[in-house]
Write a protein that binds this DNA or RNA. Sequence first.
DNA 1: ATTTAATTTTAGGTAAACCTAAATATTTTA
DNA 2: TAAAATATTTAGGTTTACCTAAAATTAAAT
Lengths: 220, 220
Amino acid sequence: MQPRIRENYVKAIYKLCQKNKEGAYTNDIALALQVKAGTVSESLKKLSEEGFIVYYKHRAVKLSAKGQQLALRIIRRHRLWEVFLVEKLGFGWDEIHPMAEELEHIDFDQLTDRLDVFLDKPSVDPHGDPIPDKNGKLSKVNYRNLTACSLHEYVSMVGIENHQPSFLQLLDQLGLRLGTKLLIKEIIPFDGSMLVKIGKKEFYLSKTVSENILVGPHKE
Amino acid sequence: MQPRIRENYVKAIYKLCQKNKEGAYTNDIALALQVKAGTVSESLKKLSEEGFIVYYKHRAVKLSAKGQQLALRIIRRHRLWEVFLVEKLGFGWDEIHPMAEELEHIDFDQLTDRLDVFLDKPSVDPHGDPIPDKNGKLSKVNYRNLTACSLHEYVSMVGIENHQPSFLQLLDQLGLRLGTKLLIKEIIPFDGSMLVKIGKKEFYLSKTVSENILVGPHKE
DNA sequence: ATTTAATTTTAGGTAAACCTAAATATTTTA
DNA sequence: TAAAATATTTAGGTTTACCTAAAATTAAAT
Ligand SMILES: [Mn+2]
Ligand SMILES: [Mn+2]
Ligand SMILES: [Mn+2]
Ligand SMILES: [Mn+2]
C-alpha cells in the first residue's frame, strides 16, 4: 500500500476513533476519504495485514500501537506545517488546511524536527490543537465547551471543534481568536444563545457557534 | 496522467534538453526516472496528447511552451524550498536535494509566492542555480568553468556542475563555498590540476574537481 | 550498400486503488 | 423472533503506471 494512501487512512481512522469510542466504521471512513465503502473494505484488509489496524469483519476498526504511532507522526507534521504557514508565511487559519494536508505526507524526520525547533517547539497549532512531540506523546488538554460554562464566567478561547473556513472566517469577523477572553453576560434559554462581552463589545453568539468554541480558565 | 508523475517527466526532459540541444532521448529519460524504456515510450505519448511535449516517434523530444512553463514552476519550487532548508532550517547543501524533490510537487501558487517573499526573493539556490520568477523567467547567468580560467586570474565561486553529496562534502572540507574567492597560482599541464589560493591557504584541485566548479568575476 | 548494433516502440501482462452491484451480515423495528 | 432496514463485504471490472520481450526503426560499421 502506497504511503500517502496508508497515511490518509490511518489519520482518518484515528480521528474517527476519537469520536466513536467503539472504533471507526467502514462507511464513515469512506465518507472521510471520499471513496466507496467497497474500497474501504479492501483497504482495511491490507492495513490489517500490514499491522496498522485491528480488524474483525463487520466490526468497527481500531488502530494498533503501530497505527497510532503513524497517526501521531502525521498529525505532528500537519500541525507543525500549519504553524509555519500562519506564523512565518502570514496565512490565515482558514486557509492553511489544504496545504498542510499535502505537506503532512513529506516524511523526513530531520525535516520535521528542525521545523519544530525553527518554530520554537510550539505546543499547539493555529486552531488550538495540541502538537504531538517527537515521540508521539500528545499532551492531553482539558478544554471545556463554551456551552458548558456558567453565567458570569470569565474564560479564554483555547480551541475550536469545527475547522470549516466559513466558521473560522466568522470568528475572525467577530474578533474571536485563540487567547481571546470572554465574559458570559447572559444565557438565553429560548434558543441557547449567549450574550458575551469581548473587550469593550457585547454581542450574541448562537448556540451553533458557541457549541464549536472550546475555552479554558482565564488565568492571567 | 498523475500530476506528480507528469512533473517528474517534464522536469527530467527539461534538464536533458539543457545538455543535448537535440532534445531528450527515451533511454536517458528512463535512466533519470529509473523506469524502463518501454514505460517512457508510453508516457511520452500521453504527455504529447496533453500538450506538454513535442514528440515524433523515434526522435528526441522537446518541451512545448506549456511544458516549459510547467518545468520552470517545478524548478522554482524546488530551489525555493532548498533555500528555505538551508537558510531557515540550517541544513547543509549536501542534504537538501531529496527533501526538495518531494516539496517541489506541492502546488499552491500562494504558498510558493509567500515562501519567496519570506526568503527575501532569492535569485539563486544554495547550489548557485538561478530561481525562476513567478512568471517563469529565468535570469540567465554567465558562469565560466574553472578549468577555462587563466593563470593568475582572481575569481569567485558562483556555482557547481555536480550535485552529488560526496562532491559537495569535499568542497565543504576544502572550504570552498558559494562566494569563495580564489586565485589561480599555477596550472599543471601533466594532469590538468591547478594550484589555487583561497584566503591564506594554498592547495591543488584535481581536474575532476575544477571541472565541476563554476566561477564568475571577482567584482567587489 | 549491406550488415550489424543500438535505440525505440509495441504487444501483452501485472499490481494497486478505485468503481458498481450483488451477496452477506448485523441491527432495528414491528 | 421474523421481517425490514442498514451496514459491510465480496465479486467482477476499469484505469494507470509500471514491467518484459518481441518487433520495428534508426544509426553505425564494415
Ligand atoms: Mn493528507
Ligand atoms: Mn489544525
Ligand atoms: Mn520530484
Ligand atoms: Mn539546487
